[in-house]
């Protein structure tokens, strides 16, 4: 439970406020509560609810001051472990940085698949490109830095690690993350023919399912 009076609310222009939280967990809690209240029709009008690593941006509000006063009266419940649906993503653990990551983890390359896929992840926030989700859930001792030299082209479907985050590239872009695997068919990550084009929306839980032929 987070007491609303503990929220650090910062101004962001005339029609937005940025709410800062102590950690990713409480950020996810606040996001879940905002979405719950919006679904229940009890949220004051807001155009965009944009989570970040430790913040939630509320953009397109009439009166940021009024919003801040209301937020202070909230009690934000902690999410339970199984809160929200689970998306399963098939992955081949065959990325070009697999051996480097395995070395940093102190295990063999053949063990990365079992280790990485043993955790349940959650989409903390999106950005960088449409449908690009920043997934948390990797324990701190497995965090790896970005590559010293970014690649000019990371292929669509690349399963990648950087700092606390795991991501799957929805399309080919330049990128500096460590590539450990491949989602064989990345098209569902961003599909404009669906009502909800992004597969990985903030708050969604994710499991990676190793496919045959893994390195």
């Amino acid at each position: 439970m987070t007491d609303g009076r503990m929220l650090d609310v910062r101004p962001a222009g005339r029609h937005a406020l940025l709410v800062e939280l102590p950690d990713a967990e409480r950020t996810g809690d606040l996001l879940a509560e905002l979405l719950r209240r919006r679904a229940a029709g009890t949220l004051p009008p807001v155009e965009e609810i944009v989570p970040g690593a430790r913040t939630v941006l509320l953009d397109g509000v009439r009166d940021p001051g009024e919003w801040a006063r209301r937020l202070a009266e909230w009690d934000v419940p902690s999410r339970t472990e199984d809160d929200g649906g689970v998306v399963e993503i098939p992955v081949r653990y065959d990325g070009p940085d697999l051996a480097d990551v395995a070395a940093r983890w102190g295990i063999g390359p053949g063990e990365v698949a079992a280790r990485h896929s043993s955790y349940t992840y959650r989409v903390a926030f999106c950005g960088f490109a449409p449908g690009f989700g920043y997934l948390t859930g990797l324990p701190e001792e497995l965090h790896v830095p970005r590559r010293d030299t970014p690649r000019t082209r990371v292929p669509a479907g690349a399963l990648a690690l950087a700092g606390p985050y795991t991501a799957v590239y929805p399309r080919a872009t330049p990128g500096g993350w460590q590539l450990i695997g491949t989602m064989p068919d990345p098209a569902p990550l961003w599909d404009l023919t669906r009502e909800q084009p992004a597969l990985l929306t903030p708050g969604t839980r994710v499991r990676f399912v190793p496919q045959g032929g893994a390195a």
């Binding site: 222009g13 989570p51 970040g52 913040t55 939630v56 941006l57 953009d59 926030f125």
Partner: peptide, 10 residues
């Protein structure tokens, strides 16, 4: 700064 939401005009 950890990544955070950005508004138009920021």
């Amino acid at each position: 700064l950890p990544s955070e939401g950005m508004v138009l005009g920021a």
